[in-house]
């Protein structure tokens, strides 16, 4: 039960309270670029969620078994080479290059898959699907997971990492769909000429971010409610 509460906390934290776009300001490029129509925005959100889940799973595997300090694989090889068991082999310098590699590869994979099976979605993404490769939201999720794999006493298992990734992806989808809804309505509004286009989009994004600040502290309330409910 404790695990479930932790997972719910992680999910809500990633989706609402510490929303990737509106709290950390990562993934702004597709957030502003593909938020003109709700259906395209929703497709983009789903693609990011999908890629983020794959990338997070792969990077958790690599980090847990190879990259983190005290990972099993390097330790085993170290001892096979006749090393001292008390010294740790630390490969965390490789984390960035491995994450970028994994993200780029999974985006390539998703692009080919979508192109084959969902041509309409592929068309509506246009140039933005390859741009997910350099989407900082995904690298951010990987680095966030790496942060929780540093301390050997409190290691994140795969479910936690995956929850963070899916929660972050859902939060991204929520933010971009909200933004697209507002921008669709904005087309019918009399926006002052100098603010049209990117100007008003950034202002709207800022107001949206302020609105999301209202979620701060919700996780503590949810935790106490769940605890009271369970015990």
């Amino acid at each position: 039960m404790e695990t479930l509460i932790t997972l719910i906390q992680i999910a809500i934290g990633a989706a609402l309270i510490n929303n990737f776009v509106l709290h950390y300001f990562v993934g702004i490029c597709p957030f502003l670029g593909v938020s003109r129509r709700i259906d395209t925005a929703f497709g983009m959100g789903c693609a990011v969620t999908f890629v983020i889940s794959i990338a997070a799973t792969l990077s958790w595997v690599f980090t847990y078994f190879i990259l983190r300090p005290g990972a099993p694989l390097p330790a085993w090889i170290w001892q096979m080479a006749g090393g001292d068991a008390s010294t740790q082999v630390n490969l965390s310098v490789l984390s960035y290059i491995v994450y970028i590699f994994v993200i780029a590869a999974s985006v390539q994979f998703v692009e080919m898959y979508v192109r084959k099976f969902f041509p309409a979605l592929y068309k509506s993404f246009g140039v933005f699907l390859p741009l997910i490769t350099t989407n900082c939201a995904i690298l951010f999720a990987c680095l966030e997971i790496m942060k929780h794999l540093q301390d050997p006493m409190r290691l994140w298992a795969l479910p936690e990492a995956l929850t963070l990734a899916v929660g972050g992806g859902v939060g991204f989808t929520l933010a971009i769909v909200l933004m697209a809804g507002i921008r669709e309505e904005l087309d019918a509004c009399d926006v002052p000429k100098p603010l049209r286009g990117p100007g008003i989009a950034l202002i709207v994004a800022g107001i949206l971010a302020m609105a999301f600040m209202g979620f701060a502290g919700v996780d503590r309330g949810i935790q106490s409610t769940l605890n009271a409910f369970l015990h």
Binding site: F62, I66, P74, I77, W78, A81, G83, T87, V89, N90, L91, V93, L94, I97, V98, F101, V102, A105, Q108, F109, M112, Y113
Partner: peptide
């Protein structure tokens, strides 16, 4: 330790490249 770390780093990246190249080629 340095030698093993270097070899491991090179090995990990090389292995990763081979796996990814194979998967993407198949896809």
């Amino acid at each position: 330790l340095t030698t093993v770390t270097m070899l491991l780093a090179a090995g990990v990246l090389g292995l990763l490249a081979v796996i990814v190249a194979y998967v993407l080629g198949w896809a």
